[in-house]
Computed example of a mutant assay.
Amino acid sequence: MTTPSQAIPGPRDLPVHQGQATTRKSDLTNYRSVNALMESTIGLFKTELIKPGRPWKTLSQVELATAEWIDWYCHRRLHGEIGHIPPVEYESNYYLATTKPQVTTTI
């Protein structure tokens, strides 16, 4: 059992500087949003890869399976909220649409 002095720092432990009290609520909201996203992704990872593959015989098996799952998750998974395309393709399309073409000259 942990005592309060051994507890893991959480959102209430975010630093608050004098005159920035209004920023703390925003920081807390951002922390919760990122935390929820990570918990969701980790839950999906465990459900789709870790639990069905039990018992894992070596750490190397888990490392290789994790690398393969991450590759699938980023490069081949079709994401419904972004038009049923992989996240990497969506990101690529975004940067193509938002970056200004650079002017090059030849001498």
Rank of each mutant, 00 (worst) to 15 (best):
Q6A: 13
P87G: 04
R77E: 00
S26V: 15
Y94K: 08
P52H: 00
S60I: 12
V88W: 08
T3P: 00
T104H: 08
R54Q: 07
E39D: 10
P4F: 02
I8N: 07
L64H: 05
P87N: 04
D27P: 02
I107F: 10
H84N: 15
L78T: 00
V62C: 11
A65M: 01
P11T: 08
N30A: 14
T58E: 02
Q61F: 03
A21I: 13
K46H: 10
G83H: 04
Y90H: 14
K46W: 04
K25R: 15
I50V: 03
V16H: 07
I107D: 14
I8Y: 10
L59M: 12
L49N: 01
V34C: 11
T105Y: 12
T58M: 02
I107G: 15
G53T: 01
E89I: 10
D71S: 11
P101A: 12
A97C: 08
R76K: 12
I42P: 03
V103T: 11
E81Q: 14
E89Y: 04
K57V: 13
T3F: 04
V88F: 07
A21G: 09
P15G: 01
L49E: 00
Q61Y: 00
N30D: 13
T105K: 11
K57R: 09
H79N: 11
C74L: 10
G83L: 07
P4E: 05
Q61I: 00
P9H: 05
T106A: 08
W69H: 01
H84T: 13
T98Q: 10
R12W: 12
S92L: 06
L44T: 15
H17P: 03
L78Y: 05
G53P: 02
L96S: 14
E91P: 00
T104M: 07
A36P: 06
R76G: 06
C74V: 13
K51W: 08
P9W: 03
T41Q: 11
P101E: 15
K46L: 04
L96Y: 06
W56N: 00
I42D: 01
M1W: 05
G53S: 07
L28W: 12
S60M: 06
S33H: 10
T98N: 09
